[in-house]
Amino acid sequence: MKGKCVAVVVAAIFCVALAGSAAAQEINAYMGTSPDNNAKIAKFIKDKTGITVNQTFQSFGEIEARVKAEAPNFNADMIIGCGSSTGYLAKKNGWAVPYASPAWKGVADVFMDPQGNWYNIGNFSFLLVGNKDRLAKAGRTMPKSWKELLDPKWKGEIVMPSPLSSGTANMMRYSFLALYGDAEGWKFIEALDKNIHHYTRSGNAPTDLVGRGEFILGLTSDENVKKRLDDGYPLIWSVPAEGTGYDGTFALILKGTKKLDAAKKIVDLLGTPEFSALMAEIGYMTPRPAANALYGKTLPKYINLDLGKAADDKAKNNDIWKAKLRTDFK
């Protein structure tokens, strides 16, 4: 008898566990902004359209890898927040559903593809961050230019993300290559490598590591700096004299989605001034002008970039990066 009872209990557990949660209108999205910001964006979409966005947090690099691996059968209906390279790649390979959204009329070229393959919901940049306490203790000040990072006194005290896994790091790399030109750019990256303690997986990780005081300086995404300052980390940030690069945060609809209408509805929503206001509040430079939380009204100085070229060169540059920086460790 007791054996049977157990069998029944086990069977019941099994059924409950298997039964999925059926819900109203849902959409699956790969989202590459920080977990916090993904949640904010998902909530905004839910509030405005009633659509529940099922999201996984992944870095830009991981989203691109996943999309490449899954093509042409994607496990998500759309991407909200991937790097520009993924957007250009999707356009080139026909992985995106072109949609000319009426809600996006009148935004600048950087922010949307003419055919509507991708939409840019916000530009972000990278910054130099420092730990105030550690700087004060060491009696040093924030470097004024990128070149100053090459000073041997910073050896082992700088962290930055790895371009193999982080889109932010890819942005840093193509920005330095654009700033100094390919030959000088690689020389700079190699020289910088001597002072880098290690490369992190996520583009935001240096903010936290420097905030904790594990390292004095970090090259990091500007995405989370505002939040970390509010959290109370003893951080100081700056844009060195040469300026900084930028990347878009792209949204696109993936081919094969069965929820095209919902996806279009979301794309429309992303083009509204309200959504821009949300993104600007987080710290992005947005398609619709809005006061930026981190930079205020004066945007930082930008390095001249060609995002299309950067996307094309990415694979090649990954190979060079590995060949140059990985042959001899320590």
């Binding site: 947090f57 496990n75 998500a76 935001n204 990780a205 903010t207």
Partner: peptide, 19 residues
């Protein structure tokens, strides 16, 4: 793991590397 079906172990790892 796929969107809409996050697991605790992955979630903790993400949160951890993210800081």
């Amino acid at each position: 793991v796929s969107p809409g079906f996050q697991l605790a172990a992955v979630k903790i790892f993400d949160a951890a590397v993210y800081g």
